[in-house]
Design a protein around this nucleic acid. Structure first.
Lengths: 294, 294
DNA sequence: AATCACATTTTATAGTTGCAAAATGCAATT
DNA sequence: AATTGCATTTTGCAACTATAAAATGTGATT
């Protein structure tokens, strides 16, 4: 009847926050600090913490607040029990993407038709459609209805996307404002190492994909030019859909990881133009190996 | 109560269509053809034609359809009477932009506040906000409300934008898929010439701005890579807002036009890398001259 | 055969209202 | 002084209705 609560998402965010800040058992979790961090008020933070308390991840002390009740390692075990289902909006979003890629839709669809098919109220559907429009694979027609664009479907777009990424990332690295970010580099190294130490086999496809994107976005962020970063983020969001359809070739991951680390090495020894050239071939190389199902 | 009719827009579109296809007095305007062209059904075309009939631009013959009643030159005279006001959505959009640039808003605003200020229903406000979000200068907060981004305001973003454009356009031109578009080139030459023959003084700021953007987007379209084109279109939409705030230095226009024509010349004589290099300095040159008011 | 004109069906927006969630103010506690 | 925990206010999503516009099917006209 009323809207979906933020608290499930906030719960996840808090766990991620705790992890990435390497917090320890017993550390204090002030409401306002978390609220500022996630750009919401204290209310949804409270309700998220109450839920984490029920799961035993945090401990409440009357009038003193919430404290981390377990160590980092223990969280993973507790967390996996919940079996992360994609939240409502995301689930429908992915179904639309699937149905589109498998050709279930005509190019042109009406809102009412979509409401019927997915059994969602209009408000929610529109939110999702706007998100898709933002990603660029559907558009509002002037009269009634929406029209899917070709972007996702064709082999040609797929290659054009790789070229775009390769050019943007390389050029971003060559900008005079480019400045390696020590902290970002350190974290990237950690992730790539984790990926090397067993991550290849155990991590989910989504996790591997995210780690890869994070790496590239971190690099572009170093350019100090928000437009380059936005462009990369935008195309990566679109890419996510296609890559989900593709079987990851895990045997290629060691090479990929090594190349990532090599780029960091080159940058840290001030060999920027070499790094940029290598980055270009690194990205274009990836496009040749994978083959979309569609 | 119900939605705004498409017909005013369609009327304008039909006039533009007639002009750009160099149609003559007496030519037939079939409903279905126009409907397909504008991607709507026949209904709004009908109602638009009925309105054009009242203005004497088209003539209806029972059971035979609508025919152009005047010559092209006469249309301009008849049309100007209507005094094109920006349509409702666009008006509010521009007010929001103005109010934002003049600092009337806090960074963070709620939907209700905006509804009160502009006295628009939520549905319409949301449509506008989504458009703004798509352009990248506002974003939905996780909880309630929206947050304006810094993008528009800072000198630094302004320069970053020019760099982005220069890089993208240059690189687009260097792609192996780049292929000059004879028809596009011809039309571009025409426009640039018109601009030279009196356009400098008479054309409105918006018209001059549009001509410039069209030129650059046409060039990037020749790359055959939709991602480059999207990126340029996106940043140009954003630029429109800022440039509106700036007084055009009309004395620079002759040089700009000459440079545009020079780029076409270079491309047509197969000196592509020269053209690309020249394009880069052309864009960066423009950034140095103009100074934002803000 | 193409196209229009009209009648009918379908669609989407404006305008409600109810309510749970989010935001916020402030006294109580440490 | 910082932070919680509760009470109050504000917000925005969902659900519904009415209605004008858009889409469409079909017989009539050229």
């Amino acid at each position: 009847m009323a809207r979906n609560s933020l608290s499930p998402r906030i719960s996840t965010d808090i766990i991620e926050f705790v992890k990435s800040n390497a917090m320890r058992k017993g550390d204090h979790l002030p409401l306002q600090m978390l609220a500022d961090n996630f750009r919401v008020s204290r209310a949804p933070i409270m309700s998220a913490l109450r839920k984490l308390e029920q799961r035993g991840i945090v401990r409440a002390e009357p009038n003193r607040g919430y404290f981390l009740a377990v160590n980092l390692e223990a969280i993973d075990a507790l967390q996996s029990e919940t079996g992360e289902a994609a939240d409502g909006d995301d689930a429908i979003y992915l179904r639309i993407a699937d149905d589109r890629l498998s050709g279930k839709f005509a190019e042109r669809v009406s809102e009412n038709e979509l409401m019927r098919v997915y059994a969602v109220p209009r408000t929610r559907l529109l939110k999702i459609l706007h998100r898709i429009a933002d990603e660029g694979w559907i558009e509002r027609l002037p009269g009634n209805g929406w029209s899917f664009k070709q972007t996702l479907m064709s082999r040609k777009s797929y290659e054009a996307g790789y070229i775009f990424r390769a050019v943007i990332e390389q050029q971003a690295m060559l900008l005079p404002t480019f400045q390696p970010d020590a902290d970002g580099f350190r974290k990237a190294r950690e992730t790539q190492n984790d990926l090397g130490n067993g991550g290849y086999e155990h991590w989910s496809r989504a996790e591997i994909f995210k780690a890869n994107n994070d790496f590239h976005e971190m690099l572009v962020a170093c350019s100090g030019n928000e437009f380059f970063l936005d462009a990369i983020k935008r195309i990566n969001r679109l890419r996510r859909l296609l890559e989900y359809q593709i079987t990851i070739d895990r045997s290629r991951l060691p090479k990929q990881t090594a190349e990532h680390l090599h780029i960091l090495d080159l940058l840290e020894s001030d060999r920027r133009s070499e790094a940029a050239a290598f980055l270009y071939t690194h990205i274009m190389g990836a496009s040749r190996i994978k083959t979309p199902k569609v």
